[in-house]
Nucleic acid binder design. Structure first.
Lengths: 120, 120
DNA sequence: CGTCTATATTGACAGACCTCTAATTAGCTA
DNA sequence: TAGCTAATTAGAGGTCTGTCAATATAGACG
């Protein structure tokens, strides 16, 4: 099962959610990203990676922060990878992860609230 | 960090995800919001409500946009309500939903990517 | 080669989730 | 009161998800 992200609607995207209704395709794409962030462990992993010095973190930097087995961390990293939020690169014995800042920026832009409408 | 209000981590929150690691509590709170947005139907509902004229939408304005039964729409609206993203108010026969813009703004702020670090 | 360490994959299981139909509640109007 | 509509709740069925133990893969090094 090839899990490459097909980036269709998201490319033409990112007028804020509150400005005009999302198309079904946009909603599907965005929901995939939000689902990847819908678990506390994955959110912390994402944050640990994004905020780590040098912009990348080794898996070995991450596992210690959780009371979970290595396979579980690996599973969550895979979900983050397949969502397109992060990439992993093997260098020798270790695997280093870094975030895709454009994806974060895109999500942030989508969530910007629209201007207030005057209450009736 | 001043802790004035008796609420959760989200109140004291919102340094961007990429700036420093999320606390476990912050991650739990945020993951609840992202989970509420992790379904395409709920995302479109949220967008329909947020972008609707007057800042609010009647359930009757929403159901027509989907090939789903009324109970299913109602279920999704409940999830959005319980997450704190929207509120519903009954006025006569109809129920009107509106978004909490502060919550959207908070999420948007959390996702702002950190400044680029110079590649090695 | 063999062995050690760091990650990933597999397979299983309990719990959560999305959708439906059927039943229920809330309000309007006769 | 009864009847009608808008919306929600309850319960069931099938699917998806998070976690683990066991196993496998990749590279470093003697």
């Amino acid at each position: 099962m090839p899990k490459q992200l097909p980036l269709t609607d998201l490319d033409a995207c990112c007028s804020p959610l509150a400005r005009e209704p999302l198309s079904e395709g946009q909603a599907v794409e965005l929901s995939r990203l939000f689902k990847a962030m819908s678990d506390p462990v994955r959110l912390r992993l994402l944050s640990l990676i994004a905020s780590h010095a040098g912009g990348e973190a080794c898996v070995c930097d991450l596992t210690g922060a959780f009371d979970l087995t290595a396979p579980t961390i690996s599973h969550h990293l895979k979900v983050l990878r397949e969502s397109g939020l992060v990439t992993g690169e093997r260098r020798g014995t270790w695997v280093y992860y870094r975030v895709h800042p454009e994806v974060l920026a895109r999500l942030s832009a989508v969530l910007v609230p629209g201007e207030e409408t005057v209450p009736a």
